[in-house]
Amino acid sequence: MSGLTLHLDVDRWRRHLRAEAGSTPGLVPVIKGNGYGFGLRRLAEESALLGVDTIAVGLPSEVDQVRDAFGKTVVILNPWDAHLPLAVELAEDPQVLTTVSRLQDLAALADLETRPRVLVEVLTSMRRHGIAPTDLDRVALLADRVRIEGWSLHLPLRQQGRSAEAESLARAALAALPAPLWFSHLPPGEAAVLASDLAAPGAPPVPLRLRSGTQLWLGDPGSRHTTATVLDVHEVSRGMRVGYRQRPCLSDGYVVVVAGGTSHGVGLEAPTSASSLRQRAVALTSGGLEAAGRALSPYTIAGRKRWFLEPPHMQSSQVFLPGNATPPSLGDEVPVEVRLTTVTVDQIVPTHAP
């Protein structure tokens, strides 16, 4: 075993997946990008085991990577684009449900002979994609030429005002055309209340579908950990120049070469939100350290996170270990903290609880 390795307690992970599926009515697992670190095909297979009838990918190009492992409906979340030949082709595929977020695109889909399956996205306070609530009545005019299977609403993560926005936009959509509501970032408890509130007196709750990605696949951090293989260890003395940039060592110690570089996503972590002045100051300070070549690495060696000697290389990284610490041996596995939504591991190794 060598490289960047994700150790996964498969039994515990699957217990979490089943618990999420059981508590999330209308669950639609989201499978996109790097597959949340697990890979698209594996998540498609896990979704099939959960017994759901629909999964969601981000791009048209991701459909082929999951359709063999999941034989039911595949939703494409990114808005349909008439300039993409693959998107046009997939819009006529009966297994595919296409998201449309512009009126002109809905009209173009309505011109296809196959009467494609579509989700119509409503513009939320995210201001990313969607048709404005004031224009939703124009969607109903095309309902006989496409199969509208629901309204899609992608809500912001911020909790304040979320339920009120969900209800307001849902009412606007249902007034234009009765159809199931597909939500992102709406907790099951809030969704259940909303479904009841939207229902007419004596009528059953409005059908809701809840998309889940991060919470579903990564919601139990205790089910996994990531390690990197020690590839080389070199003793160095103060002033010795090392690395591509030949920076001098500030003290005696060791250069530890570990698996994981830019091709894995190490050192390319997505930025975290910084809403307070203190958080922004920390972010600025961290950025200054990185610019000066003094970034703290995600690798833990001899009990502490250690500094990068320089930015990560393509497939490995060099970190500095002070001389008063015990160096690891060649082939040792050291802990590395990575964000699985931005990192590609070399291998996934099943583990079991002791």
Results as ranks from 00 to 15, higher is better:
residue 87 A to S: 15
residue 231 L to P: 01
residue 3 G to V: 02
residue 133 P to T: 01
residue 293 G to H: 05
residue 209 R to Y: 06
residue 183 F to C: 08
residue 190 E to S: 11
residue 307 W to H: 14
residue 195 A to D: 04
residue 1 M to R: 12
residue 222 G to K: 10
residue 146 V to C: 02
residue 272 T to M: 12
residue 78 N to D: 13
residue 234 H to K: 15
residue 260 G to D: 05
residue 103 L to P: 10
residue 56 A to T: 07
residue 151 W to V: 03
residue 282 V to I: 15
residue 149 E to H: 11
residue 141 L to I: 12
residue 101 S to P: 08
residue 272 T to V: 15
residue 54 T to P: 03
residue 276 S to H: 07
residue 354 P to I: 11
residue 2 S to H: 12
residue 70 F to K: 03
residue 189 G to L: 13
residue 113 E to Y: 07
residue 87 A to R: 05
residue 54 T to A: 08
residue 23 S to W: 06
residue 154 H to Q: 12
residue 96 V to P: 00
residue 147 R to H: 09
residue 46 E to M: 08
residue 198 L to W: 06
residue 149 E to R: 13
residue 203 A to D: 05
residue 310 E to T: 05
residue 193 V to P: 00
residue 203 A to S: 09
residue 344 T to K: 13
residue 98 T to D: 03
residue 27 L to T: 03
residue 332 D to M: 04
residue 108 A to S: 12
residue 330 L to G: 10
residue 141 L to W: 09
residue 346 D to V: 03
residue 345 V to E: 08
residue 138 R to S: 12
residue 274 A to E: 13
residue 324 N to L: 11
residue 28 V to Q: 00
residue 203 A to N: 01
residue 319 V to N: 00
residue 295 A to C: 10
residue 223 S to H: 01
residue 72 K to H: 14
residue 114 T to W: 09
residue 5 T to K: 11
residue 44 A to H: 00
residue 203 A to F: 00
residue 228 A to N: 07
residue 189 G to R: 14
residue 348 I to H: 03
residue 257 V to L: 11
residue 103 L to K: 05
residue 138 R to I: 07
residue 35 G to W: 00
residue 167 E to A: 08
